[in-house]
Design a protein around this nucleic acid. Structure first.
Ligand code: MN
Ligand code: MN
Ligand code: MN
Ligand code: MN
Lengths: 218, 218
DNA sequence: ATAAGTTTTTAGTCTTATCTAAAAATAAAA
DNA sequence: TTTTATTTTTAGATAAGACTAAAAACTTAT
């Protein structure tokens, strides 16, 4: 039996391993989970015992095949619940994450596969992230940060890099959402802010915003 | 913050207090929760600290107003999830309880009130038990055990006293379900078994079965 | 009323998941 | 290549929840 805590660690390691493919550091995990490095070390030993991670002292950690399978399945559950909350229970996209953090740990395969069916096998969650199918397969399409676009380029908003409530609420207010076409009109060199155009509206966004928005190039 | 474990104890005390209105015994709680009396004592002290129960050593325990409110809300959540699993996710009535035991602990008022709406504000769960509304109100209708009926009497099946998988599977097999009309044809004095009639089928059920089926008299 | 039996509580231990503080290993600078 | 700084691990403590064994309190029965 795997505990809530173990599952959360596997998920965090999975996400970090995209950026650090030859070993995720103890500190990185601690920071993203709002815990202490010593707690992480303890957990890594336990996960290693259970053959869910490959871990050697001071060398960083990576998921085993088995660990990755569990992490991907957890992400599947999380994202399906997010879709459910948005589509069926009238939650907004900035509200879904918090509750999905709890729901994702419910242990029932039938539950999650039936939920998948109820939602008509969605491919993306409310933040534009792909939902793995029951075998763990999912397509990750090419997306780039808005901050990397040049002037005159256009893309479709496909996801966010930051899913914090504050950020999502800001996007709601500015009418920025998944599926919207965004054109870079002008880039301000001084502070990195960008003048963008969405549906005939032009306004400035800060660099901080631009580097948390994913676009698919046209 | 209330923990999963604390919630489970409150629920157990709530259910027992119907039978022991002047104090639920430590042993009764231990037995129904498959734990030990000493563990129960520890928890009663903690719940007492939190003003969720009135507890004095050796005197049994009862819920405070506040504790009862929490227990009833937990039961609301449990039963709404059971309806959801049956109606939306194709679970059978013998499968719903186990998963609902986990789902009931998810903490979000919006979640549960929206779920209530999605299900069209159901009044009964799959086992015939009443679902409290968001203010904790529910009607408990008069129901009697099949074992207490006399020969020739008829009633509508409205609930079960035992929700174990084994029992519910037996009922499925015998085509006994909520809403069915059941007539007592003959009562066998020797072993307490009863010959019943459901939709033109007659067959014997044991006394053990009869004392776990609730009927509403016609 | 006393003894025997039952229930409940206490005392002490274990596991899981945290934390702080200090030691050890690694990485960066001088 | 030493010294310094940073990262990581160990050691020891704490809190929640559960357990066993034994003591204490209540109930029955003689
Ligand atoms: Mn999320
Ligand atoms: Mn998401
Ligand atoms: Mn149930
Ligand atoms: Mn039920």
């Amino acid at each position: 039996m795997i505990t809530f805590s173990e599952e959360n660690y596997l998920k965090a390691i999975y996400h970090h391993s995209k950026d650090y493919p030859n070993g995720v550091s103890t500190n990185a995990i601690a920071k993203s989970m709002c815990t202490k490095a010593s707690s992480v070390t303890d957990m890594l030993k336990k996960l290693s015992e259970k053959k869910l991670v490959n871990y050697k002292k001071y060398q960083g950690v990576l998921l085993t095949k088995q660990g990755e399978k569990k992490a991907v399945n957890l992400i599947r559950r999380h994202r399906l619940w997010e879709v459910f909350l948005l589509e069926k229970l009238n939650f907004t996209w900035d509200e879904v994450h918090e509750v999905a953090e709890e729901l994702e740990h419910i242990k029932s395969e039938k539950l999650i596969n039936e939920l998948d069916r109820l939602l008509d096998f969605p491919k993306k969650d409310p933040h534009g992230d792909p939902i793995p199918d029951k075998d763990g397969n999912f397509t990750k399409d090419i997306k780039v940060l808005l901050s990397t676009l040049n002037e005159k380029e256009t893309g479709i908003c496909v996801g966010v890099n930051d899913t914090s409530t504050d950020f999502l609420k800001y996007l709601n207010k500015q009418n920025i959402a998944i599926g919207k076409h965004i054109t870079v009109v002008e880039k301000e060199v001084f502070d990195g802010s960008i003048l963008i155009k969405i549906e005939d509206n032009q306004f400035y966004i800060s660099h901080q915003i631009a580097k948390n928005l994913f676009l698919q190039l046209q």
